[in-house]
Every structure is written in C-alpha cells, then in structure tokens.
Write a protein that binds this DNA or RNA. Structure first.
Length: 288
DNA sequence: AAAAAGATCAACCGCTGCTGA
DNA sequence: TTCAGCAGCGGTTGATCTTTT
C-alpha cells in the first residue's frame, strides 16, 4: 500500500517564514542536501509541511537566486519564451537560472502582461524608452512579426523533424560525407535539454553507424539535418544565445555536421544534467 | 496627513504525473 | 496491479508596501 503521510496536518504552521525557521531549513539542507522534503519537519522540528519547506527553499533560500528588478535582457527573454512556450514558468525559468519560476510568473502577471496589453491597445506603438519599444530601434510591430515568424518556423520544423521519414530519398546533398557525432559537454536545462537531445538523437539514429568513432559516410543525414536546421537556428537565436553561459554551435554543409553544447550553469544543474543525459543518451563523442 | 487604490510578491491551493509499497 | 503519497507545476490569494487623491 501507500506510504505514511508526509506530515501531520494538525499543528502545521502557515504564513510567512521567520529568520529562525529559515536558519533551521538551511542547516538541514546543508547537512542532507536538497530533497527528501518529507523528512524535514521531523529532522528539524519545524512545524511546517514538507511542501512548504520545499517551496521556501526553491523560491527563496536556494543559493544563486537573483533578487531585485529584471533587466531589459531578462524581460526580453521572458516575453520571447512566453510567446514560444506559453505559461510554462518552470520551463522558462530554466533559461534564467538566477530567477525562480515564481518570480518570473509574478513578473509576467504584474508587469509584462499589462505592458503587452497596453501596447496592443495602442495603434501607434509607443516609444517609452523601455524594453519592448527599444528592441534595437526596430518598431515593436516589426519585432512581433519577426518573433511570430520565428515561432511558426520553429513549430513547423519541429513537427517535421519529429516525423522524420527514415526511408527518405538521398538528396542532392548526398555528396557531403563527413559527419561528426555530437560532442556534448554539458547541457543543464533538463526539459529543453532532453527535447534537444532527443531531437538530435532522432536524427542521428537514422545513421547506420553513428556511434562509431571517426567520420562516416552517411548521406542520409543531410535531408534530416536540413529539416532540423530551423529548429536549432531558432533556438540559437531566440533562446540559447541570450544566455551567455550557453553556446550551441551548429555547423553543417561544409563536409561536417557538428553540434556543440558547452558547459554552463550551476554545479547542481550540471549534476542533474549528467544524470538526465545518461538516461537519455548513451552517446560517445569521437573527440573524447 | 490620512484614506483609498493599486502594485508587489511570498506563500498557499489544487491538480497531475510519477513512484514506491 | 492498485493505491496513496510525493514532487512539481501553474493559478490564486492576501498581507504588506507604495502611490495617488
């Protein structure tokens, strides 16, 4: 049968946390690491439910959280990601590792939603000197259209890439011969990382011997990579590039296809990624 | 100066998918 | 296989702070 209840509902404290409670929680995490929240109240004596402890840690006490106002860069990223992903705040937060999903959600609800609404209501897009209207001096209308085009391209490309036809005929690029399989350093964003890895994996799976070391003669990869390119380009230009710690390079059509996802982010995220990536991809880079 | 209105954000609620017994 | 707890997520609330009247 099921597990014992995580906490006794009677006597559980609610409301704002006191500094003393914070210290108790931080001490616990320092000693046992984050996770196993169920045991926090019994270990620490905190009269809080495990859920509340987890929330307090992830949204407030966790190291590396940036507080204070959002920069124009962050604001721009949130708007773009929200347009691309919808209200997937945890997903969006993974691109802004110093911000929590709760912060981003609050910022969207209290600032950005209103701002966008205001701009939409106005026939003439205003020049108030702030983020939306100062996107490299292009008009907001122009920017919106570009973004929409990017989103549509990415969606279509993703759709195409996900329905790869392994028996597709060899294209006119079939003379391109060298394929270097993926060299993954680290990619800390769990979900998008997984998505990207799967996507790439799907393409590479079409190779007869992609796990072999060294270049291979695999003409079939080319049509697939061609289909995948807009997705990756979109990710590079609209999502990954604005974050300085992540670099994704996709070079192709020059006798070589190479995708590099380079190290970044926090040690915990790195560790998390290693676990995830092992599960999803047992891929060996020929460079290693 | 004080009351009202608006803004902010930490914390809670309820739902969902996953997992362990 | 079933069932209940856990973890995580997005939506919402309400206390507190700030601005406006």
């Amino acid at each position: 049968m099921g597990r014992p209840p995580c906490c006794d509902k009677m006597g559980v404290k609610k409301g704002p946390w006191t500094p003393e409670e914070d210290i108790m929680l931080v001490s616990f995490v320092q000693e046992h690491g984050p996770g196993n929240w169920r045991t926090v109240p019994t270990h620490t004596g905190l009269r809080r439910c495990s859920k509340s402890c987890r929330l307090r840690w992830t949204n407030y006490l966790r190291p590396g959280i940036k507080r204070g106002s959002f920069t124009d860069q962050e604001e721009k990223m949130i708007i773009q990601l929200q347009a691309l992903l919808g209200n997937k705040w945890a997903n969006i937060a993974s691109y802004l590792p110093e911000r929590t999903d709760n912060d981003i959600k609050n910022y969207w609800n209290t600032h950005l939603k209103k701002k966008l609404k205001k701009l939409e209501a106005s026939d003439l897009y205003s020049n108030d000197g702030h983020c939306l209207s100062s996107l490299n001096s292009t008009s907001r209308g122009q920017w919106e259209r570009t973004l929409q085009a990017d989103i549509n391209t990415a969606k279509q490309a993703l759709k195409n890439a996900c329905s790869l036809d392994k028996s597709s005929p060899i294209s006119e690029y079939s003379t391109v011969t060298d394929v270097k399989p993926i060299n993954i350093g680290c990619y800390p964003h769990k979900k998008e990382g997984k998505c990207l890895l799967l996507l790439t994996h799907q393409v590479l799976k079409t190779l007869p011997n992609y796990s072999n070391n060294g270049p291979e003669v695999i003409p079939q990869i080319i049509p697939n990579i061609q289909r995948l390119r807009p997705v990756l380009n979109c990710l590079v230009t609209t999502i990954i590039m604005p974050w300085p710690n992540i670099r994704l390079h996709l070079s192709h059509l020059n006798r070589q296809i190479q995708i590099n996802i380079l190290q970044a982010a926090t040690p915990e995220a790195t560790g998390k990624f290693h676990g995830e990536s092992r599960k999803w991809m047992m891929m060996k880079s020929p460079c290693q």
